[in-house]
Design a protein around this nucleic acid. Structure first.
Length: 474
RNA sequence: GGCGCCGUAGCCAAGUGGUAAGGCGACGGUCUGCAAAACCGUUAUUCAUCGGUUCAAAUCCGAUCGGCGCCUCCA
């Protein structure tokens, strides 16, 4: 079986064929940094990371870009509200975003290009479009002439004529046609600006993505992602800008991810219906948030709720608990190597079966939900083995299973080893010791009271054969 | 109105032609001083509804009902 990806433009699944043998160029539309990231933004991040990890696993040399739009009307508005420089706002939010990229277990992208650092490329692209007559300056602005690009609407499945009927001509608009969109916007008094052949101004919203993607990935590259709400107009306009300039196919696979919903409605900044990722991470461990985001196929919408999040936490804990038991039995697993190993090398057929199914799921349009389901089968299999009487064979199977479990979890960026486990505080340790003493003297009432105390401090005592174990409860 | 997506168990969620993964919850059992964790078992004769195609449909086609997204703020 080969890697198949659903391409929104062709509206079907196709075997993946890279533009350049052995290499993958991918671009994920990041956020406009007028505010701190919410869960929806992080879904894009996690999806991008998933795709990148899977492509890397299959041996591709991946160049992965996740951009920041760091100058736009909303950022400027925000800066004015706060009486701060727009750069201060942008930087603050970018820093915040990056801290959650790390916290949620994402590998860093190859590059996080910013619009403000690519004014040359942006202006070159605009100049090219103006030169071809596909764009025109108008009173300090520059617009894309949609009528001159016949393929307009091919991604969002819209017809230019139908679009036109739905548009109103705004008063004072400098556009020739209401469908035309801005490539360059003239700076108003007090706004940040860059000098350009068309006067002082800043880029329109869509142009920076076309310019930056093409700068680093070439005129034609493999994968472009973003929220499904970006299909129109953002991605549609990106295609128009890029293809009108180069005459080449801009992107081969368009992968838009589903949105987070809140009470059945889109989580969005404009409606004030959203949860900041920093708030979510207050009520759920970042590992849980990642698990939650990966446990639904990336193209489906996800209803966000604390209940769902809590369920995800319990499910993940099941996997972590197996990982911990494995550690206790055969020690910490060997460090993961970058070199993937083929399932054929796995001796135990059941473990091998899990691995094959897991990988198959990821090959099938990055189906992390289906892949993760297999982890529970492996978990049950290993828990069962753990209870078996000691033998060389048992140990070998367990070690193999442990390696596979961590290997597969890592493939989707899930860490099952609580390496940063909180040290149990001294006061809790004292209670645990008191309780052990009470249990030795069979004072069960006292032991149960102490367990309550310990629980009240956020720790769970479990009596295993011989000794009691403490762990923080999540 | 146009375009696109979706409707699977109490809840969440895979499955896009070969006879319903997985998780949460619930119930029963094993283990335990009791718990917890773990393990074993039960929990959808059926996939919004109605028709059609097919040897075979949750999967394909049509209609209906319901939900969501986009139609220049959007991840």
């Amino acid at each position: 079986m080969c890697l198949k990806i659903y391409d929104a433009l062709r509206a079907d699944r196709f075997p993946f064929k890279p533009v350049r043998e052995g290499k993958v160029g991918m671009y994920m539309c990041g956020m406009t940094v007028q505010d701190r990231p919410h869960v929806g933004h992080m879904r894009g991040t996690v999806v991008g990371d998933l795709v990148r990890r899977v492509m890397t696993y299959f041996g591709y040399d991946v160049t992965y870009l996740n951009n920041f739009t760091d100058v736009d009307d909303k950022i400027i508005d925000r800066a004015n509200e706060e009486g701060a420089d727009y750069r201060t706002i942008a930087q603050r939010n970018m820093d915040c975003y990056m801290s959650f990229v790390d916290l949620l277990g994402n590998r860093r992208a190859t590059l996080y290009p910013k619009a403000t650092e690519h004014m040359v490329e942006i202006q070159d692209l605009i100049a090219c479009l103006v030169g071809k007559g596909v764009a025109y300056p108008a009173g300090g602005d520059v617009y894309f002439r949609v009528d001159r690009y016949p393929d307009y609407g091919k991604l969002s499945k819209r017809k230019i004529d139908e679009l036109r009927s739905g548009f109103r001509i705004e008063v004072g608009d400098r556009k020739e046609s209401p469908l035309d969109f801005a490539l360059w916007k003239m700076a108003k008094e007090g706004e940040p600006y860059w000098d350009s052949p068309w006067g002082r101004g800043r880029p329109g919203w869509h142009i920076e993505c076309s310019a930056m993607a093409m700068k680093y990935l070439g005129p034609s590259f493999d994968i472009h992602g973003g929220g499904i709400d970006l299909i129109f107009p953002h991605h549609e306009n990106e295609i128009a800008q890029a293809e009108a300039a180069t005459g080449q196919t801009f992107v081969n696979y368009w992968i838009q991810h589903g949105l987070l919903l809140l009470g059945g409605e889109k989580m969005s900044k404009s409606t004030k219906l959203f949860f900041l990722i920093e708030d979510v991470c207050q009520v759920a461990h970042p590992d849980t948030v990642r698990y939650y985001l990966l446990s639904t196929h990336f193209r489906s919408p996800i209803e966000f709720s604390e209940e769902r999040l809590a369920e995800a936490g319990v499910a993940l804990a099941r996997l972590q608990s197996t990982a911990a038991a494995l550690c206790a039995a055969v020690g910490v697993p060997p460090r993961l190597t970058a070199e993937p190993f083929p399932p054929e090398k796995i001796h135990d057929l059941e473990i091998r079966g899990v691995m094959e199914k897991f990988i198959e799921a990821l090959q099938d349009d990055f189906n992390s939900a289906r892949a993760i389901g297999n982890l529970f089968d492996l978990s049950r299999f290993l828990n069962r083995h753990l209870a078996l009487p000691a033998s060389g064979e048992k140990e070998a199977t367990i070690k193999e299973g442990q390696m596979v479990l961590h290997h597969l979890a890592d493939l989707v960026g899930l860490n099952l080893l609580p390496l940063d486990e909180l040290a149990t505080p001294p006061d809790v340790m004292r209670l645990v010791e008191d309780r052990a003493e009470a249990r030795r003297s069979k004072d069960w009432a006292k032991a149960d009271l102490l367990r309550q105390d310990i629980l009240a401090r956020g720790f769970l005592v479990e009596d295993k054969s011989g000794k009691s174990e403490v762990r923080p409860c999540r």
